[in-house]
Structure formats: C-alpha cells, structure tokens
Design a protein around this nucleic acid. Sequence first.
DNA 1: GCGGGATGTTGACACTGGGCACATCCTTAT
DNA 2: ATAAGGATGTGCCCAGTGTCAACATCCCGC
Lengths: 195, 195
Amino acid sequence: MCPVSTSRQYHHGDLRSALVASASKLLQKQGLAALSLREAARRAGVSHNAPYRHFADREALLAAVAEDGFRLLALRLEDAGLGGGRDLGEAYVAFALEHPQLFRLMFGGQIPIDRYPALREQASRAHGALSKAFSGVGSERDAANAAAAAWSLVHGLAQLLLDGHLPRAGGADPRAFAHEVIGAIRFAVGAQRSA
Amino acid sequence: MCPVSTSRQYHHGDLRSALVASASKLLQKQGLAALSLREAARRAGVSHNAPYRHFADREALLAAVAEDGFRLLALRLEDAGLGGGRDLGEAYVAFALEHPQLFRLMFGGQIPIDRYPALREQASRAHGALSKAFSGVGSERDAANAAAAAWSLVHGLAQLLLDGHLPRAGGADPRAFAHEVIGAIRFAVGAQRSA
DNA sequence: GCGGGATGTTGACACTGGGCACATCCTTAT
DNA sequence: ATAAGGATGTGCCCAGTGTCAACATCCCGC
C-alpha cells in the first residue's frame, strides 16, 4: 500500500503526509475556513488536483487532520492518566487551549466520524483513556455514566473557554481557571441536590 | 429587461428578517456548509447581491442567525429555570438536540462573538439564566465557578451527544440519557476526591 | 414636484471543490 | 532489459460562491 522508508520517491515521495502536514499548519495558522485543498496542495508544491489521489474529497483530508489530533490527544491523556481524574481533565483543557483550531475541527461536527474508521478508532482511544480513571466507581453503568459526565465537564469547559464565553474569574492563567472550575463542580452538585 | 413591474414589489418590505429566516431554515435542513448568501437570497426571492444592503458579509448573516438561536435558548432556560438546576441542564441539552446545526453554529467558533454586540448580549442572557440557579452557593466566586462548571457539564454533554461520541447506555432516548449522566456527575466527583 | 438616500439589480472577478483526459514515472513479469 | 500496467501528478473545464462597482428604482422630506 504505502511504501514507507525503503524506496526512492516517485514524484513527491510521501504526498499524503505532506498534505496532512501542510493542512495542519494551515488550520492552526489561519483557521478552518482558510483551509482549502488547493492551498494545501500549493504548499506541498503539487498541482491542485494531486490531493485527489490520496483523499476522496476535502472532507477526507479534514478527517486525516482530525485523526492526527485525536492521536495526539489520546497520548496526552494516557500520559496524564497516572495522576488521577483531575489531572486528566486539566490535560484535556490544556490540549484544547494549545490547539484551538484543531480541537474545533475534531469536535465541530464538520466530519461524520462514522464514515472514517481510522478517525473513530483514535477518538475511541482518547475516550478510553478518560474512562479508565472511573472504572472503579459503583456499578459498571455508574462508572460509564461518571466517565461520560466527567468527559462532558472538561469538554464543555474547553469549548466555552475557546469561544470566550466564560469570563475568567481566576485571572489571566486559563489553566488555573480550569483547575478552579473543575473543583467547583461539587458546589454545583450540592445546589442540584437542594433544588 | 422587465418592463412589467406593477405587481412585483421592488422593495421587499423586510428583507433582513426574510434573509435570516431563510438562512435559518437552510441551516437546519442542509447544514452550515450549504448555507450560502446566494442561496438565502434566492429563497427570499431577491437578487444575489441584495443581502449586502443588510449584512456586511456572510459572517454577519451567520451572526444574525446565531443571535436568534441564543435568544431562543435564553427563553428556554428562563422557562426551565423555575424547576432548579437539573431541569435547566436538561433543557439545555434538549435545545441542542432539537437544533443541532443551530447549536453548532452558535458554539462552533466560526463567529467572533465580540465583533457582534447584539450576539454577545443574547449569549450573556442565556449565561445569566444558567448562573441564577447557582447564585446562592458559597461565596460569590464559588457561585460563579459552580455556574461555570454546571454550564460546562451540560454544554459538553450536548456537544458530545451531537457528535455521536457518547455510546448511549440509557437506550434510545437521549433525554433520559442526559438525565442519567447529569446525575452521575456526583460519582465523578467522588472518584476525583479519592484520587 | 423633486432631489437624495435607502434599497435592489446586473455584471464582473477571483477563488474554490470537483470531474475528465492525458502525461509521467515506478514496479513487475516476461 | 524491456514492455505492460498501475500508481501518481498535470491541465483544462465547469458550476457555485463571496465580494466589488456601476446602475436602476423606489420612498420620504423639502
């Protein structure tokens, strides 16, 4: 399929990777709207139609970029997993803040995940890293729900921070703010009970 | 040349509203990618450049649609607010599930909110409706953080449900699932403490 | 009336995603 | 080694889009 290291280059060598790379850079610098197939091709030094040999359409290229994103996120979470649930959450938010555009692409609903098995797999990996921290809580179902709730919490926090919806009470440092908010969920739970 | 112009009104009457309406419908039915200025104009029965008398560019039209979305969300939350924090959360998720595309537009980061004061105001209104439920919790700062945490939780849950990231354990009904997950946050808090 | 500003229209340009036929190069079987 | 054949990349084409500029039409205050 994809001869990796041994053979000489045909025309470009590894256009697929080059395209994903230039697309990622483009996404990070200029945002999703500016990410065009043609521009990515231009930066990779090939004609505007060459990408179609590697990606069915623009969406497929986006999916490849997102897949890389999920892979990176999963790695981060697996690293942070040793520190417990709260560290996981902060790592999640940190990832989003470091790669805002990438994060939006990954969760922006632009890509129908089920159509890209490789994408789904990396996403599941990230999911798994989060779930593991809650595997010992109550029944199996309780654990799954707790994991879903925790994921929701940190995911929503990341998203709202990116969109500038949360007036950051905790000063300039978003990481500290995230720490504070994640901790404050217990107050919310309390209020919920009393209501 | 169309010399017959008696029945056909040259001035549309309220083109701005008509454009927002057709854009909303378009968004809901076909998704953000299919929402073009030209198509919206076409559906409003007007030439492809007429929108520019009311919107500086495509983004401004999107902002107007999103503004309507926030207005609707705020209303929903204000209605649900009487029932307490948990009802609020479920109303939030329900809104997202009923208007998936609109919700994504509102929070997809496509629109720089700060550039559209009217948008910001409606968004703040929704925020306020959520915050009110936590106004009595601990110190003022605790309350703000609790509100942020609660918002994050339901927002993340909505987003993850829309993207199909959460395998729904609770059967077919997403509303019941949302109820369950929101309730499960306390397990997550417990796990967090013990970690 | 009538002139000016708001509103719509037509035309044009650059750009994009995507399809087609053709050129180029590598690999493999003969 | 060489010819067949498939993988890879190129050009040219088309429809659709956002946006600008010039022009047409309408409505309101003088």
